[in-house]
């Protein structure tokens, strides 16, 4: 193992009196003071937050929201993978169940009945976005989430969809439907049946 022993020089009596470091400290703080204080330099680097807004860089991981497709339909199919993967268990999905509301877009059979993210628990890790097979949830640029109660910070499906906006992707289920329709119909119709579309 290559351990390099750094020699520690013993301090001289003068240095041990704290006086040189004290003076050095005074110098450092004075220089900063001089640069920043009004009438002397006045170059604060503080951003005046509410008036001045930070430019959020690309790839920033803000709050996760649900997105809609180009036609304004819910993309989420309630597969619950994000709920499963979420490290702080911030996501809670209520699946539609047997008699649930059908999905609001053609050919997708399933849509969440309720989708909640507890923004107080969320750690903005982005695993939900990464795991989503439907490209339905994205970490967006919101970093300033506020509320006056804990309940208010649990965002429901409606709110998440509203905040999330639209994500134009390949519309997987629509694509499948078009493909099925373009194909020849079946030689024999098997009854009883109901096609999903």
């Amino acid at each position: 193992m290559s351990t390099k022993v750094v020699e520690r020089k013993p301090l001289s009596a003068w240095e041990r009196s704290y006086i040189p470091s004290f003076l050095g400290g005074l110098g450092v703080t004075w220089n900063h003071f001089k640069r920043t204080a009004p009438f002397l330099g006045n170059k604060p680097i503080t951003m005046e937050y509410p008036e001045q807004k930070w430019v959020v860089p690309e790839g920033y991981r803000g709050a996760p929201y649900l997105v809609k497709d180009q036609e304004g339909a819910t993309k989420c199919v309630s597969c619950q993978l994000c709920e499963f993967v979420c490290p702080p268990k911030a996501i809670r999905i209520t699946p539609p169940g047997e008699n649930g509301q059908p999905a609001d877009r053609a050919n997708a059979e399933k849509m969440p009945r309720e989708f909640e993210i507890n923004m107080l628990r969320c750690i903005f890790c982005g695993l939900c976005q990464e795991v989503c097979p439907e490209e339905a949830i994205f970490l967006q640029k919101d970093y300033s989430l506020t509320g006056t109660s804990r309940e208010e910070m649990v965002y429901n499906k409606e709110k998440l969809l509203k905040l999330g906006g639209t994500h134009a992707g390949i519309q997987k289920w629509k694509h499948k439907l078009e493909e099925a329709e373009a194909q020849e119909s079946f030689p024999v119709a098997t009854e009883p049946q109901k096609h999903s579309h």
Partner: peptide, 10 residues
């Protein structure tokens, strides 16, 4: 105020 200025703040 002084601490802010020393630390380049406002």
């Amino acid at each position: 105020k002084v601490s802010a200025w020393i630390q380049d703040r406002v």
